[in-house]
Design a protein around this nucleic acid. Structure first.
Lengths: 212, 212
DNA sequence: TCTATTTTGTAATGATCGATATGGAAATTG
DNA sequence: CAATTTCCATATCGATCATTACAAAATAGA
């Protein structure tokens, strides 16, 4: 994957010339925050170079193009924040606990989380793709589709174990949870507090079992 | 308000010069659909003039500027589609019927409705304001806030009439309904069908009373 | 018909967009 | 040391952005 594994063999494939003066990962994090807060179209190269602390040639040398940088920022976003939202979901012992944890942890992350990142979900609120960038639009649409698949898998497993009755409409219930979590992103963007979103999450699972 | 009432006296205040060649209301409707589908930033004047079938000078003569046109499009959107979503909500006799109607009618409108307008809600999915247009951002934020106020008023009235217990957390329940409806916009934008969203709506109110 | 008034289409404005070319300074390897 | 490679700043590219001169065209009242 990588050209060199610096922790094991940083001598062999070390390039010849002047080393890169900026921290690529830190620059990518800055770009991610900017895309996250402003969206793809509204974020200009000038905005990016200023936030990343580098010049335009360095940006293009390191990331290729604006859409490639966005794609990488999206992967960085998922790699960095995915476990904060889905970690307890995966280790929960019941579907109800999993969904509860998913919504509660979403409430925390969407409103700022541990660091003070932008509000809302970068994937959920992204409107890229509606303006011509079809490939980027497909990326975020697929990322949004993963949510539904995970919820359906969780609920299907709960049906298999008997936690939920066999008559459960797995797809419909997953769609409802997906809608609630997506809606929480919009409320967070408009300034809803973490407490408010946690109340939404708890209220959403309070009716657990009513519609199965 | 108007300079002339054309239905009663269309002879007196007829302007002097060359008459406008295009239908202003139809042009505004076209602009609204474009802003609705693509958002403010991604919609260019060239896009607008092409969709409206007019030249740029005509657009500026009739609407002033791009942000003024967007503001007018937003008012047109609300005036045209508001009653499709909130009509049965207002005339319902119980809060439960009102919320059910609100979510079911939202499902219909968000997925295309009677005409085949863009998917999702123009107000909910709008990201304008995060890129410098503060006044437009305030407009859409206020429009989103109206949803919460109406839901809270409905639930408060239901508490007063005894339909809901006095211990009801009106604000929290309104937030949940708001989140569900907002999330339905995002699902609709990604292609969820009307049937799917109606199922979400029905499932959302199936647990009615569990969290009060 | 004549003139005043308003809209029209064409084309141009300056600004900014994403993306590159240039070029000298800096840093690492051999 | 020399060679190499990347750095950054600046300047520039064509394209597109929102906006507007400009003059022809079309209608009203005279």
């Amino acid at each position: 994957m990588q050209k060199s594994d610096s922790t094991l063999d940083n001598r062999a494939a070390r390039p010849r010339g002047r080393p890169r003066a900026f921290d690529r990962a830190r620059a990518l994090a800055a770009a991610t925050r900017l895309f996250w807060a402003k969206g793809y179209e509204a974020t200009s190269i000038a905005d990016l170079t200023e936030a990343m602390g580098i010049g335009a040639p360095s940006l293009y040398a390191a990331f290729g193009a604006k859409d490639a940088l966005y794609a990488e920022a999206l992967r960085y976003y998922e790699a960095t924040y995915e476990h904060l939202v889905w970690g307890r979901f995966r280790t929960a012992s019941t579907a109800r606990d999993a969904v509860t944890a998913y919504l509660l942890d979403s409430a925390a992350v969407l409103t700022g989380g541990p660091d003070d990142h932008p509000l809302g979900c970068m994937v959920t609120l992204s409107a890229v793709g509606s303006e011509g960038h079809a490939e980027l639009g497909e990326m975020v649409r697929k990322a949004r589709a993963v949510t539904l698949q995970r919820l359906e898998a969780c609920l299907s497993a709960a049906v298999a174990t008997g936690e939920l009755p066999a008559s459960t409409d797995v797809h419909g219930q997953a769609r409802l949870i997906q809608a609630i979590q997506a809606g929480m992103s919009i409320l967070a963007r408009d300034g809803a507090s973490r407490d408010e979103l946690e109340a939404v999450a708890r209220r959403a699972v309070a009716g657990w079992g009513a519609g199965f």
